[in-house]
Design a protein around this nucleic acid. Structure first.
Length: 255
DNA sequence: CCAAATGTTTTCCC
DNA sequence: CGGGAAAACATTTG
């Protein structure tokens, strides 16, 4: 589930840690660099930010990059801003913990729990290769990102180097509201249509953030797992694999 | 038991 | 070197 909206929800929750000194760090060294704990202990947290799906915790030393993969989640001061991950277990087993970062209390200030272990931890994460953030992407930026890309538009929207923050659910949601078929080659979409996509991208991400995450849209997981019908008029929708991921879309309203 | 699942990363092939 | 397609990764759920 972790797409842009989840990352922003967790970043916002992690704000509570700003100003505290890190007293202890434990982490699963299969998902982060071996010097991660030593580099962070004794440092004070100074800020948090987010780019795409990456949450960054700044300190007066190195910054900590949190990347959640498909099933990672963040627990702040023992509270989970998002309880249930739709495609992950609802459980929260201690052996799934990948990071426990403490600031003096018994309960870790930041805890990353990730059953499938596809999430990653990093020091001073390199964000330079990420495309413009999907929450704020402009029409001009999106035109540039799609230029000379012959892959289906949906595949390019999922490419974090082109535009960052969209996952499978958000991409389907944005294309549905935009009225654009996910199978269209990206470079064959004219500029006015790209501008429409950029506008809905900002609009839908704000809405999904407000409503609690990427699973709260029209094409939510319960809808897409069954044979879905169009939210506008109940026409039969299409469920097919595009770029190796399941796409759900309405052939009548998306061209 | 089998298939599919929100995400990268790697590998192979133009 | 660049783009794209497909496989790989690891584990749970329906």
């Amino acid at each position: 589930m972790p797409e842009g909206p989840e990352a922003e929800i967790w970043r916002s929750a992690a704000e509570a840690v700003v100003g505290r000194v890190i007293t202890d760090v434990w982490f699963d060294d299969r998902v982060g660099p071996s010097d991660l704990a030593d580099a962070l202990v004794g440092r004070r947290v100074t800020a948090t930010h987010r780019h795409g799906k990456v949450v960054v915790v700044d300190t007066d030393g190195p910054s900590l990059g949190l990347h959640f993969g498909m099933t990672g989640r963040l627990v702040v001061d023992g509270r989970s801003p998002i309880e249930k991950l739709t495609y992950a277990s609802g459980a929260d087993r201690p052996d799934w913990d990948r990071l426990r970062l403490s600031t003096g209390s018994a309960t870790p200030a930041l805890r990353m729990n990730d059953p499938r272990r596809l999430g990653r931890l990093s020091l001073d994460p390199d964000l330079s290769h990420l495309g413009p953030d999907a929450f704020t992407v402009s029409a001009r930026e999106l035109v540039r990102a799609l230029r000379r890309r012959t892959a289906p538009i949906k595949s390019v929207l999922l490419d974090q180097k082109a535009i960052s923050g969209l996952g499978n659910l958000c991409a389907d949601e944005v294309l549905f509201w935009s009225g654009i078929s996910p199978a269209r080659p990206a470079d064959e979409i004219d500029e006015s249509e790209v501008a429409t996509i950029a506008t809905w991208c900002r609009d839908r991400l704000a809405a999904l953030l407000e409503s609690g995450g990427s699973t709260t849209g029209l094409l939510d997981p319960s809808t897409r797992s069954a044979v879905p019908s169009c939210p506008w008029d109940d026409a039969a929708m299409t469920r097919e694999s595009i770029g190796g991921r399941t796409a759900v879309w309405c052939p009548r309203h998306q061209r």
